[in-house]
Amino acid sequence: MKMKKQLFWEDVEERSEVTPLPKVASRQMLVKWAGASGDFNPLHYEDAFADSQGVGKPIVHGQLKRAWLVQLMSDWIGEQGNLKKFSCQFRAMDYPRLMKDMFEPQEGETWWCKGKVTKKYVEGDEHCVDCDIWIENGKSEVTTRGNATVALLSRG
């Protein structure tokens, strides 16, 4: 298993970019998420039900988008970093791609999880940074927005 790259506090500045993470939401992913998370709201897999709720078609679970943003931060801070605080709010609906075959989604939208450092500081013995984080849909519209505080490994 290859070692993951480790981020150090000293390598980060205010306004540094969090390494973007691409995601493709598919109907299959939503089914998997329903099973793995326990959120079986038919809003996320039944066309008629989604339509009756006024969203047209099944939409991506907010908590799945939240989990993507947690991965964005975990991947970026590396194994020695700690995610201390995390929040997100859902601003707009996202519609998953349909499936082409058993494994691959059809062509379509790709979502990008992104972030930016807003503050860098030392608190007690921890080397922290605060970040704005968000998800952009295929039209570069922000559909989910949040904040994260992480403690990073320091060379000091």
Partner: peptide, 18 residues
């Protein structure tokens, strides 16, 4: 359950699997 949760996100971090 951890494995399935990570798989649903598409997160292959070995800390959740290996």
């Amino acid at each position: 359950a951890i494995k399935k949760f990570a798989d649903a996100i598409g997160d292959r971090n070995p800390l959740y699997w290996d």
